[in-house]
């Protein structure tokens, strides 16, 4: 029998932990990791510090290439999966390559969420998920001094801190779309607004953005239902949504993310989904929950690896640690900042 071939789509904490666990549990299978990003695995929480110049780019990355060589893991960066044929167990890559697999772990994570209403102005907004995004911020900040922040997720708060350190002027729009994955409440609004204002941030309260006009390369005018704001750049921070669009017609069950059972199995044999891209069934809640945070992602990666090798481990989460955010059940291991 030829050597088994396992493929992991992703290079974030879930994928890396899965690969590491497969090897540490003695699997001698060929392991391939695919990442559509062309850079190494990185620590996103350091991106604001990178933008402000407090740390260099090298500090962002958590694993040297030598690690993968040593573990005999084929890390394929900058190579995007665009489809999967589960019946023939084949993955299609953007550059028209076809990869076969015996076992598959999908760990494609999340991508910045832009609420539907804001998608109209998407091309005028900067987001922050990858070092590439951070470089766009760095380049923009060379020519602008004022930034308008939309949304209020954890990333926006740490980036605001970094931008203030750089001497930039910040305006912040907070409304019901903000604070993902924390449910919006007047109480949180007040606490956050007060905190921001005490740091010199101008908090704009509005319900709707009516119009966004680009006046010139470095000047944008934003008309809201309460006022009009002029700024050099806009940052959109509404949390992350599972990055699974390329799988919508693959036959997988997808709601927000890929639906998996408590063993992280999809409906296809030997195919698992983990991390921010998955929605995990909770037998007690009889509902699916979304994972957020490194620790969660890594834990799920480890469980999926064990189960791919024949174990029957459950992804156990205490029901009380699962939040309801606008109807979506969320469990986050990313609390410390808030």
């Amino acid at each position: 029998m030829s050597r088994q071939s396992f493929v992991i789509i992703g290079n974030g904490p879930a994928a890396n932990q899965a690969a590491e666990s497969l090897r540490s549990q003695g699997s001698e299978a060929k392991i391939t990791m695919l990442s559509k990003d062309s850079f190494r695995g990185y620590l996103p929480h350091l991106l604001p510090d990178f933008i402000s110049g407090s740390i260099g780019e090298e500090s962002l990355y958590f694993r040297p290439h030598a690690y993968y060589k040593e573990k005999n893991i084929f890390l394929r960066l900058g190579q995007k999966a665009v489809g999967i044929d589960f019946s023939k167990r084949r993955i299609f890559l953007e550059h028209r390559e076809v990869i076969s697999f015996d076992g598959l772990i999908i760990a494609t994570g999340g991508k910045p969420r832009i609420p539907e209403y804001y998608q109209l102005f998407e091309d005028l907004m900067l987001t922050l998920k990858t070092p590439q995004d951070a470089k766009l911020w760095i380049s923009k900040l060379k020519s602008v001094d004022s930034i308008l922040m939309l949304g209020g997720d954890l990333t926006s708060l740490s980036l605001t801190r970094a931008l203030l350190k750089m001497g930039k002027t910040i305006q912040f729009i907070i409304n019901e779309d903000s604070f993902w994955p924390i449910p919006y409440s007047e109480e949180i609004y007040k606490a956050v607004a007060q905190r921001l204002e005490s740091k010199g941030v101008q908090v704009v309260h509005c319900n709707k953005i009516r119009r966004v006009t680009q006046i010139d390369e470095n000047l944008i005018e934003v008309d809201t239902d309460t006022c009009s704001v002029r700024t050099g750049a806009i940052g959109a921070f509404f949390g992350l949504v599972p990055d699974v669009r390329f799988l919508v017609r693959s036959g997988l069950d997808i709601d927000r993310g890929i639906l998996v059972d408590e063993f992280l199995k999809t409906r296809f044999e030997d195919v698992f989904a983990v991390g921010d891209c998955a929605q995990v069934y909770h037998p007690a809640l009889r509902n699916y929950w979304v994972s957020i945070g490194y620790q969660n992602a890594a834990t799920l990666g480890k469980i999926a690896a064990s189960n791919l090798l024949g174990s029957d481990l459950e992804a156990l989460v205490a029901p009380e640690s699962i939040l309801d955010v606008g109807g979506v059940k969320v469990n986050t291991s990313w609390w410390t900042e808030f």
Partner: peptide
């Protein structure tokens, strides 16, 4: 691409 080192 399947045989390139990750640093490529």
């Amino acid at each position: 691409l399947s045989v390139l080192p990750p640093g490529a």
